[in-house]
Nucleic acid binder design. Sequence first.
RNA 1: GUGAGUGUAGCUCAGUUGGUUAGAGCGUCUGGUUGUGGCCCAGAAGGCCGUGGGUUCAAGUCCCAUCUCUCACCCCA
Length: 420
Amino acid sequence: MIKAIYGTRDILPTNIHQWLNLESIIRKTMKAYNYSEIRTPVFEETALFSRSIGENTDIVSKEMYTFTDRGETSITLRPELTASVVRAFIEHSFDKIYNLSKLYYIGPAFRQERPQAGRLRQFHQFGAEAIGCEDPSLDAEMIIMAFRIISALGLKSLTVKINSLGLPAERDYYREKLREYLKPFLEKLSAESIKRFDSNVLRIFDSKDERDIKIMSSAPQLIDFLSESSLQHFETVKNALIAAEIPYEIDPALVRGLDYYTHTTFEIVSNSVGSQSALCGGGRYNGLVAELGGTDAPGVGFAAGMERILLACENENVFSVSPDALDVYVCRINNDFKNDAFQICLKLRDAGFAAEIDYLQRSVKAQMREANRLNSRFVAFIGGTEFLEGKIRIKDMPSGTEVEVKSSDMESLIRIIRKD
RNA sequence: GUGAGUGUAGCUCAGUUGGUUAGAGCGUCUGGUUGUGGCCCAGAAGGCCGUGGGUUCAAGUCCCAUCUCUCACCCCA
């Protein structure tokens, strides 16, 4: 048996309404905040990702699905969508056409990691990018919008974490200072953290090792190395969150892994999805557009994992109601008027109703069971003595009451069904 | 990439110290009404017990390998 690739999932008809519901909340909210949808290809030139996300990040160094096409171009299935959106922004000269581009996306992304709860190899993200403006209100807008979307599903137990990484120069200087501080303790750190000392010192703050935590507790803090204007930016973001009544906490250990972040970073975490608790992550990326060859346009954005969000919904037992009920089921009393029944069913569909009919020549009882299973509001009986007399019997399923209409009179048939 | 665990009907799971024809609930189908659903009742279909090898008179049960999926680490959405 051929099965779906490890780490990929089929989204089956029984679950699809959860996805449609989430998507409709996303689209509705994005519209309210005036973000426009953009759809970009699922694969891109590999260089796009290595340059934006960072050559030595885990994503680029070991998690990308990369292959060579018939020519000799190295191609990669997108591991995230920000890089693609920025690429499209530059390619279509959005900076010259719009003062500010507010864009959102929904779509699959691919990362070759070991799957676990809340982590797949093909997963779906939605997110937004605001490119062309440095105003901290936009940082706050992102956080507020993401929080509103996730809350709208009914999820509780959400935490908003924020931090500021300042400017690259400030961070570089801080990194040096942190290494200086850590050098004397180097041998006492956990093996993981010793590796991180070279690859990504800031990550040592995340360590779960008790010795590391102790050593890091008196380490210098990035916030003390930020310039006046960086601090001011951060303050403005925090004030906007307070005004919008978004409960947040400052997490100095919140160091986003992707290289392109500056100033604000944030995450929305849930404690009901297992160990992969980040539902949403984002921040400001002022150098990214220039890095990818565009004008020096500042940007801010976020990405959220749809599977994780839906997993949280499942674990918190918040489900959207399935909207797919049938309006009318056409039931054949006998097979004498098989074609008439089919034609009536087609007419009902043309009139805009969700209508179904039996194709398996099954008994009336079986057809009724099917109508019930499909949660049909009405059943139209075709055949038997009524049909010989030119009548169709209509049953209202919830009440069980039946009425008859002339089979030549489609209009009153439609009126009965539509009345509801 | 590292570690731990899992694998019996479509689904969720039982299966006694290895011992005859492998079970239940749900779901599916048929019937209980010469033409009417939900509830109820009766019956039926559906399993090379993940795969390969080994131990044994005898393996779903024990051993080895392999694959699968799950969870965690790492990292991230």
